[in-house]
């Protein structure tokens, strides 16, 4: 493909980077990146990827915009409360960059649908808010040999790892979902919006580096930060030979819904 004059101007600040260039910009425009969850992590990731000209951006989310989302889910505005998140996201991103194609899925990922959805994409970003989905995305990406970025946040903390086929996966670190009894009510937790912004932006940069085949990915590493105490750490990790999904003798060879059940807590029910 040949870049148009408009495209050259729009993306000029990154095209002049050696690591991008005209060829890299073409790669970005032809790329297919899936963002699972149009929330706190998905918002900044989608914003920057759309701005950078990631040409085919898939967004999957089955929720509607809630007033309490707006503190961190910056794809959505006050007028969007009550709308499907994917519709609000698509409108926001198309306004920012009409040059790209936004593909939306107004649903949640589950053991039945995830493999066929991710098969359409080059790189996947986990921007979900629950452990069931996080483990499901990990297993689906490992089993389908798809590179992906895991992200988790809480209060002032965030952590992220990138998995590509053969590198350590989320289950290498966390073998199973946290026990049901250990999950308290939502009202006890919380998160600062900037924490989501910081982490989602990192996840977008991983996707871009993967597509551009440049730099070093956050593979076999865990990046952890604590914004409150200004702590940033990069921890080297190794693939776990005993990992139930990517280990030498894996016990998980297909996706079954029962393996990803996690109690869902709804703030509204607790008011």
């Amino acid at each position: 493909m040949n870049l148009t004059e408009d495209q050259i101007e729009r993306y000029s600040r990154q095209i002049i980077l050696d690591n991008v260039g005209g060829k890299g910009q073409e790669k970005l425009l032809q790329s297919r990146i899936l963002i699972i969850g149009a929330g706190g992590l998905g918002s900044p990731a989608a914003f920057y990827l759309a701005a950078a000209g990631a040409g085919n951006l898939g967004i999957i989310d089955g929720d509607e915009v809630d007033l309490s989302n707006l503190q961190r889910q910056i794809l959505h505005s006050t007028d969007d409360v009550g709308r499907a998140k994917v519709d609000s996201a698509k409108e926001t991103l198309e306004k920012l960059n009409p040059d790209i194609n936004i593909i939306t899925y107004n649903k949640r990922v589950n053991a039945q649908n995830i493999s066929s959805i991710i098969s359409e994409y080059d790189f996947i970003i986990d921007g979900t808010d629950n452990f069931g989905a996080k483990f499901l995305i990990n297993d689906a990406c490992v089993l389908n040999k798809k590179p992906y970025s895991h992200g988790g946040i809480l209060r002032f903390h965030g952590q992220t790892i990138t998995h590509v086929p053969g590198s350590a996966c989320y289950r290498c670190l966390f073998e199973t979902l946290p026990p049901k009894g250990a999950v308290p009510s939502c009202s006890e937790a919380g998160v600062l919006g900037v924490v989501a912004g910081f982490l989602g932006t990192l996840q977008a940069s991983e996707a871009m580096k993967y597509i551009l085949k440049t730099g070093e990915l956050l593979t076999d590493s865990l990046f952890y930060f604590d914004i409150l105490n200004t702590e940033f750490r990069l921890l080297k990790i190794k693939r776990n030979k005993n990992c139930p999904v990517c280990g030498d003798n894996p016990s998980i060879s297909k996706l079954e819904e029962k393996n990803y059940e996690q109690p869902v807590c709804d703030l509204k029910q607790q008011r």
């Binding site: 969850g37 706190g40 629950n130 988790g152 946040i153 939502c186 921890l235």
Partner: peptide, 19 residues
């Protein structure tokens, strides 16, 4: 030694044990 903690997502569904 490294302690690695579970971290969820934007909804903050996370055990109080962490704090």
């Amino acid at each position: 030694i490294e302690f690695l903690y579970f971290m969820g997502g934007g909804s903050g569904k996370y055990p109080a044990a962490f704090e």
